[in-house]
Design a protein around this nucleic acid. Structure first.
Lengths: 182, 182
DNA sequence: CTCGCATGAGACATATATGTCTCGATTCGC
DNA sequence: GCGAATCGAGACATATATGTCTCATGCGAG
């Protein structure tokens, strides 16, 4: 029995995160069933599958921003903030990762959110470089790619049961900064 | 007009790589059209979409193995071979990457191919560790994950036009071994 | 020249997902 | 108590993709 203190729309979004992270190809009927609502109700709240994916993307972005903001509020340097943020983001990967395979970039809100997050990350990396946290000769675009992909690698370790989120985050940060050679 | 020296089946596989790497959700009709064959012909060669995906996965694995074998045949150490292999694999990512989102693991041939490739990579990393190429305190599972995900990051750089394959491979190897700090 | 094989086109069938609509039920606020 | 809002179930329609089948055609080998 679903918690009536939470709106129907929020229930649907929660169910969608749960269902799609297990099976990105799942149907709207699967999501409705998991949410404990009728298919018609899902269609009353979201005009279609694409609309639902957009809503999920915007929710994921907000969750990520909030997690990073909360985790890094006491950080003294950008370099420290990036490390702490990595640890905050990694556990969200399990819930958000399926969105990476969804072609939703044509929605201007989604495109803006992605662009904004990439700009913010690149800005923070540039500031960390100025602090001496990264080698200034390495392109910022590459450090952005490496940062995001090592988070994915960490998530894959956790999903496989080979590491805890904390261990995976430490390995990802260690690799990003010092590599894995001796 | 398609090259009649190449079998129909090979044409279909080539077309499938080209079409699916641009749009993983494309239809079999799209693939048939791109291959210059009839839909019925595609169905004569592959019993279904799943069968085609399995064939693509096995072909991709063979192409990867051949590229790595050819690139590393003169390498003196495992560490050198891993670096050279990375450079050989990265350009194939554009063609093969869509397969990562295809749930084909339930096919025993696909599962065996994936398991074999991961075992081989883990073995080579263990040997490189013994040579002093990697820190023995870092789990091999992690280095496997980091290696594969940094290749993906490199592919993303090339796809975005931010680096050449050679530059991307160098950045990936640099990050895997020395990290991106000073 | 004939036969076998492979093929393309198109018709037809099946399957699944999605989208819309209606009706009855429930809940809540006034 | 009533009305409005929301909802679930199910019927119905639409769309797309896939799978099968048949027939005519072309090509190559013998």
């Amino acid at each position: 029995m679903r918690d009536t203190n939470v709106s129907t729309e929020a229930h649907i979004l929660e169910a969608a995160f749960a269902v799609f992270s297990q099976n990105p190809g799942a149907s709207l009927a699967d999501v409705a069933k998991h949410a404990g609502v009728g298919r018609a109700t899902l269609h009353r709240h979201f005009s279609g599958r694409d609309d639902l994916i957009v809503a999920l993307t915007l929710t994921a972005a907000r969750e990520l921003d909030e997690a990073v903001e909360e985790a890094t509020k006491d950080c003294q340097t950008y370099t420290q903030a990036l490390e702490v943020a990595l640890g905050a983001i990694l556990p969200l990967a399990a819930r958000h990762m399926f969105l990476a395979t969804e072609p939703a970039d044509n929605d201007p809100r989604v495109a803006e959110v992605y662009a904004s997050q990439t700009r913010d990350l690149a800005h923070d990396i540039d500031m960390a470089k100025a602090e001496g946290g990264f080698d200034p000769h390495i392109p910022t675009e590459w450090i952005v790619q490496a940062y995001e992909n090592l988070i994915y690698a960490g998530w894959a370790m956790v999903a496989a049961g080979d590491a805890t989120p904390k261990q995976a985050a430490a390995l990802a940060w260690r690799t990003l900064t010092q590599g894995t050679a001796k």
